[in-house]
Amino acid sequence: MTIEILYDANPREWPAYKQAIPAALKARGIDHNFSRAVLPSDADYVVYSPSGGIHDFTPFTRARAIVSLWAGVEKIVGNETLTQPLTRMIDPGLTQGMIEWVTGHVLRYHLGMDVHLASQSGDVWAEDVIPPLASERPVSILGLGALGAACGQSLARLGFPVMGWSRSHKSIPGIACTSGANGLKKCLQGAEILILLLPETRETHNILNAQTLKLMPQGARILNPGRGGLINDDALLAALDSGQIAHATLDVFREEPLPKPHPYWAHPQVTVTPHIASATRTSTAAIAAAETIAAFERGETPPNLVDRNLGY
């Protein structure tokens, strides 16, 4: 039986996905029609992202699932018309990309690369800027999902002591896992470098604010490749200006692209990257989407099924 799959994601990515997803489905023995022209009433699945055009899911009466190409689902999970199962992107390529971005920026901070690069212009021999060994540089990660766990374990293998926090307690080799209010406080107090990899929910919105930033060691550094709404922007700017936080590297923002007048652009202690910490790569995302559809076709619950109550 041929299943009907509607593509409703970024139109610019259609030329790549119209080749990659059918190939991945064919390799899994799934007879299908994958098109941008499938009628809502005929669609068995929707390959979706918020950059597509669908806002009302009511006409999709036959759809067995909405398969998101994005890891984050905060833009859709609260849609009241969405009654179909929703899955999010869990992709080895996305995970590896995040590991590489996080590791690179942690090492930039740890090794004092900015000082040495700046000294080039003045021919300064900055021999007194010697970093501690990784074992002496505690790192904390807020969010221990697939991305947070992978990044934490990679940093631990480099020798960093890694502490992680999640809403529900977890046990992950190489990471000192915490949870709850006391665990969050402990994570923040011990973080010379803090990495945010939480989903954005009611509970995590503005999790970094004036009060929680004060818990961190003076001169700590922050990486946010998670979600823009995790940080209260005004509070972070104040903490940077006071010296409480030495630097922040931010890849995600409440409004994207980041508006030109935003103070982050000109702030000397902020590095802006354009939401590229873990870009979805067509080749691996297509395989992940096909695996999700194949799981539904086998009558299985895929591991990336979104829990509406948790919001991710």
Rank of each mutant, 00 (worst) to 15 (best):
V252C: 07
T292S: 01
Q153Y: 12
G180E: 04
G152C: 12
D31G: 11
R202F: 07
T212F: 09
A295E: 09
S283C: 05
A277P: 11
R202L: 15
A9Q: 14
H169S: 14
T273N: 11
V162K: 04
R62D: 04
A156G: 05
K260R: 13
A239G: 02
A27V: 07
T103I: 15
L230T: 14
G152Y: 11
T280N: 09
L197I: 00
A248G: 02
D91I: 00
V129H: 13
G148R: 00
F57D: 10
G29D: 12
G78T: 12
W70F: 00
C151I: 01
H275I: 03
P259E: 10
G52L: 03
F160H: 13
L147N: 07
E256W: 11
T273Q: 07
V38S: 06
A65N: 11
L158K: 06
L107P: 08
G311C: 13
E200P: 13
S35K: 10
E13P: 04
A266D: 10
G29C: 12
P217R: 01
G152L: 02
P131Q: 05
R36V: 09
L250I: 14
P92D: 08
D44S: 02
I245H: 00
A266G: 12
V47S: 06
L107H: 15
L155P: 00
I175R: 10
P11D: 08
R108K: 11
D233E: 09
G183W: 03
N309T: 12
L198S: 12
A246D: 05
V252K: 01
A27L: 07
A246W: 02
L6T: 12
R62F: 01
P85W: 10
T201L: 03
I54R: 07
T87N: 04
G145K: 00
R108M: 14
S35M: 05
L133C: 01
R64K: 14
A150M: 04
L230S: 15
V46N: 07
G104D: 04
D128E: 15
D42K: 01
L188A: 15
L86P: 10
F34L: 12
A289Y: 08
